[in-house]
Simulated assay, not measured.
Amino acid sequence: MREETGDLDLLGLVAAGDRAAFEVFYRRHGVWLTMRLRYRCADPTIVDDVVQETFLDVWRGAARYRHDGDVAGWLWRIGARRLVDAMRGHGSQHRLTRLLARLRGRDEPSAEEVVLARVEHGDLAGALARLSPELRAVVQATVVDGLSTAETAALLGIPPGTVKTRSQRARRQLRQELT
């Protein structure tokens, strides 16, 4: 298998059960997927599990790719959905504990980690943690990542109207809790 093989061709080979093509696909996309998921979740154990589940989904479902967008975007939508599912099973306190442990393990945390730690300790953090994973994912994509409604819809694999509705519900819930 050649490293220059395109993603569409690789997915076709993966759908046919080609392990070498799957390895090339994983080497090509595994690192960036892991890094991008770590921006959304400070727990490396959860991220590692999500990455494994995502690529297992690719192995099992490569034939379902509809060729209607970027392969990396398709992979990201799978990973983002898996992360939302994983976050449903882990409480806010567990995530905060992992974040703090991660912060303490370094001499100097990054600016983003400092901001996240401050947010986690404030009233906003509690309000955000009480949002459902679906609402929190929309807030993360639109506010933190700065994505448009259309980009968020593509990222999360939901219609743009659903993004708008969830965004409104999240703002309403946050407003109620913070006033």
Rank of each mutant, 00 (worst) to 15 (best):
P44A: 07
V163G: 00
R88W: 13
W32A: 13
V114F: 02
S132I: 06
G157T: 01
D145S: 08
E120L: 13
V138W: 04
Q93H: 10
Q168N: 14
R66A: 15
R28P: 10
V139F: 03
T5D: 08
A42R: 15
R64Y: 08
L100E: 14
P160V: 00
L156T: 06
R118L: 12
E53P: 05
A111I: 09
R19G: 08
Y26M: 11
Q140G: 08
A117M: 06
R136P: 05
L174Q: 03
R98L: 14
R118D: 12
S148I: 07
A117Q: 00
D57Q: 14
E151P: 08
T54G: 04
G17P: 02
G12E: 11
L8S: 09
G126E: 06
F22P: 01
G122V: 01
V47F: 02
V71W: 06
H90G: 09
L131N: 09
A63C: 04
D145P: 00
Y65V: 03
T149P: 08
H29V: 01
G89I: 02
A125V: 04
H67Q: 14
R95K: 10
T5W: 02
D68F: 00
D68I: 04
A101D: 15
A101C: 15
R102A: 14
L155W: 03
V115W: 12
R166E: 07
G6T: 09
Q173K: 14
D145E: 15
A153F: 00
K164N: 09
R27G: 10
G17M: 05
V50F: 05
H67L: 13
G105Q: 10
V24M: 01
G69I: 03
V138I: 09
R64C: 03
Y26D: 07
V31Q: 12
D70Y: 09
D68L: 11
G61E: 04
D123P: 12
S110F: 06
Q140F: 14
L100M: 13
V163D: 00
D57R: 14
Y65W: 14
V31C: 03
W32Y: 09
T34Q: 12
L75D: 06
F25C: 07
R95P: 01
M87P: 03
V14G: 05
R40V: 00
R95D: 05
F22K: 02
V114W: 01
